[in-house]
C-alpha cells in the first residue's frame, strides 16, 4: 500500500512571538516540521511497517521547505515530492488544496494522510478541501488507524463531539491526523544519513499546469494583520490555610460571582 503524506513547514510556535506594525516576527526564525504532519508521517510509517508498502511525503513551498522534507525522510519516509513555489509568502488553505489536487490528479496512492490542522494557523481546512477536489471519502481528527489489507479498507477512529466515531473508509481515501494519535519518532543518526540519499522529486507549479500569480490573485481570503490578545481583567489570588481560602472562595461565589 502507498501512503502519501502532505507535510507542512511551520514556524516554531513555542518560541516567543512579537508583533511589529501588525506583522508577526520571531527572533529565532526557526522553522520546523508541523507536529500534526509529524503524527501523520509516524502513523503512515507504523502501518506500512506492519502491512508493507511505501510512504511518500509531499510539501508545497519555497526552497527552504527542503529542510523539513529531509526531516520526514530521516524519520523513515522513502521518497518525497517538493512542489516548489517562487514566493516565500504563504497561500491560503484553499490554494494549497488546489496545488495538491493538481499533483494528486496523476499520482498513485492508497491513502493520503495530512495533519488535522497546522500549528501556526490552526485552520484545519486543507485536508477536507483536498478530499473534495479529488472526490475521495475522508475522515478528519483521527486518533487511531487500522488497515485491513484483504478488504482494502482503512478503519479510522476519530474524536467526534460526543465520543469516538469509528469509521470505515474504502481506499483510496484521505485521513487527517490528530497529534493525540502517537508520539512521532525522533530521527536516528542512521536515518539522517540515509535521508540524504533518498529521492526528492522537485516540481514547479507550471509542471502541474498552474500559474503562481493566477493562484495568488484568485485567493478568496486575505490576512490583514495581527494583534495582541485582549487582556483579561486581573483576578485575585488567595493565601493562607486551605480552609481560609475555601471559605473566601465560597463568599466570593455567593456575593460576587453569583454562582451559589
Amino acid at each position: 500500500m502507498k501512503f502519501s503524506v502532505c507535510i507542512k513547514q511551520v514556524p516554531d510556535v513555542t518560541a516567543p512571538i512579537q508583533i511589529k506594525d501588525g506583522q508577526l516576527t520571531q527572533d529565532t526564525n526557526r522553522l520546523v516540521l508541523d507536529a500534526y504532519s509529524a503524527s501523520a508521517v509516524e502513523e503512515s510509517l507504523v502501518l506500512t511497517e506492519k502491512h508493507g508498502g511505501d510512504v511518500e511525503v509531499v510539501s508545497v513551498g519555497p526552497d527552504k521547505v527542503k529542510e523539513t522534507i529531509r526531516k520526514a525522510l530521516a524519520m523513515g519516509a522513502g521518497s518525497a515530492v517538493h512542489i516548489q513555489t517562487e514566493t516565500e509568502e504563504s497561500f491560503d488553505s484553499a490554494t494549497y488544496a488546489k496545488v495538491l489536487a493538481a499533483y494528486y490528479k496523476d499520482a498513485g496512492y492508497d491513502v493520503i494522510a495530512v495533519g488535522k490542522q497546522s500549528q501556526d494557523s490552526d485552520a484545519g481546512l486543507t485536508g477536507s478541501m483536498l478530499a473534495a477536489h479529488l472526490d475521495l471519502p475522508y475522515a478528519t481528527n483521527a486518533v487511531g488507524l487500522e488497515y485491513d489489507a484483504d478488504a482494502k479498507k482503512l478503519t479510522v477512529t476519530r474524536q467526534g463531539d460526543s465520543g469516538q466515531e469509528i469509521i470505515e473508509l474504502p481506499v483510496p481515501c484521505l485521513v487527517s491526523c490528530s497529534n493525540d494519535m502517537n508520539d512521532p519518532r525522533i530521527p536516528s543518526l542512521k536515518g539522517i544519513m540515509k535521508s540524504k540519499k533518498k529521492p526528492v522529486d522537485v516540481k514547479s507549479l507550471s509542471d502541474l499546469g498552474l500559474d503562481e500569480s493566477e493562484l495568488k490573485s484568485a485567493m478568496k481570503t486575505e490576512v490583514l494583520g495581527y494583534e495582541e490578545l485582549p487582556e483579561r481583567e486581573p483576578g485575585e489570588k488567595f493565601d493562607g490555610e486551605p480552609e481560609e481560602q475555601v471559605l473566601k472562595l465560597i463568599e466570593k461565589f455567593k456575593n460576587e460571582a453569583g454562582v451559589l
Partner: peptide
Amino acid sequence: EATKDILGALAAKLDSGVLPD
C-alpha cells in the same frame, strides 16, 4: 468537531471563501 470535519470540503464544493474558528 462536526463542523470542523466538513468546513473545508463544503467551501471547496461551493467555491466560497472560508474563515474558520
